[in-house]
Design a protein around this nucleic acid. Structure first.
Lengths: 158, 158
DNA sequence: GCAATAATAGACATCAATGTCCAATTATCG
DNA sequence: CGATAATTGGACATTGATGTCTATTATTGC
């Protein structure tokens, strides 16, 4: 029910959060997340246009998160690439309904609202620290170049 | 996030439930639900193949529900045309994960599960009797040929 | 300035979802 | 049987999602 694009965007963001605040190249992300590189670059552009990630060209450049993993939630990512479109008015265009959805569309929109809320309430930091038997995106927990709390946020050069 | 096909299928089923146990022609459903008739006939075929509706050719024929509105839930309809596909194994194909989803995919699947449950717990009868200010699919509550409890279920000729 | 690195942009290809059309089939009625 | 009503099936068109490829632009280090 979630699009391939959403799946890819979330994988990329999880990887970036895992590496945060360091940047990753598209190639690195593609390999780590098993997303086709050329397509990933499109997805990352959507994320950049929505100001979820920042990009830097040239040597040492790459993609990095704009926010801290603690302050970025899943909904922001999803909405950047494939927005959850709530039902606001009657899809049949019935005048009598307008913003008063009929029971069917009320149910559908309730489901959308639940999903929206669940995503809005989940930060990337939670995903990373969540203790299940599987580590996000890879078989083994792994070393990081810079531990999460070790570095201050690098100021972004414009 | 729900496909157009799901929306159309649900509209059709709501209309059929509203008319149940009488059959409706594809044309009648199309007009009542504002779904393109030619496409609707495809959607209805999916529903027939999944044994959600029954069809009868010729004069007096049409489409009718296989079950009573009380016994048909939204999930059966959705799964007939565009199944909610739960995440059962790691989408990256990581051996180490298998059925143990990582936190990201755990979250995604949780959202799917919530939606699935919400749909499974909602019957068509509830949709019809649900009291909101808007009546399902039409501007006004309307007369029915046969009130819901007035007739026994018509046996289906095979 | 030059070479290497990396994102960006746009053209193009492929495939599935959506939508349309029409001929064939089945059923009912008189 | 013949006429009419209705679904069924298949071919086709259109569009958007997904995916690929290549040339261009920006940045860094030497």
């Amino acid at each position: 029910m979630f699009s391939q694009t959403v799946e890819y965007a979330l994988r990329a963001i999880v990887h970036l959060a895992d590496q945060s605040p360091n940047p990753c190249t598209t190639e690195q992300i593609a390999k780590a997340t098993k997303v086709p590189q050329a397509y990933l670059s499109k997805v990352l552009q959507s994320l950049r246009q929505s100001n979820v990630v920042h990009s830097q060209r040239g040597i040492g450049g790459g993609i990095s998160l704009v926010k801290l993993p603690e302050e970025l939630n899943l909904l922001e990512v999803v909405n950047a690439v494939d927005p959850i479109c709530r039902i606001k008015t009657c899809p049949l265009g019935l005048k009598g309904h307008g913003a008063n959805l009929c029971p069917l569309h009320r149910k559908l929109d309730d489901a959308l609202r639940e999903t929206e809320t669940a995503f809005a309430n989940t930060t990337l930091a939670e995903i990373l620290s969540s203790s299940t038997s599987s580590y996000p995106l890879c078989n083994e927990p792994h070393e990081r170049l810079t531990p999460l709390q070790a570095l201050p946020v690098v100021p972004i050069k414009k």
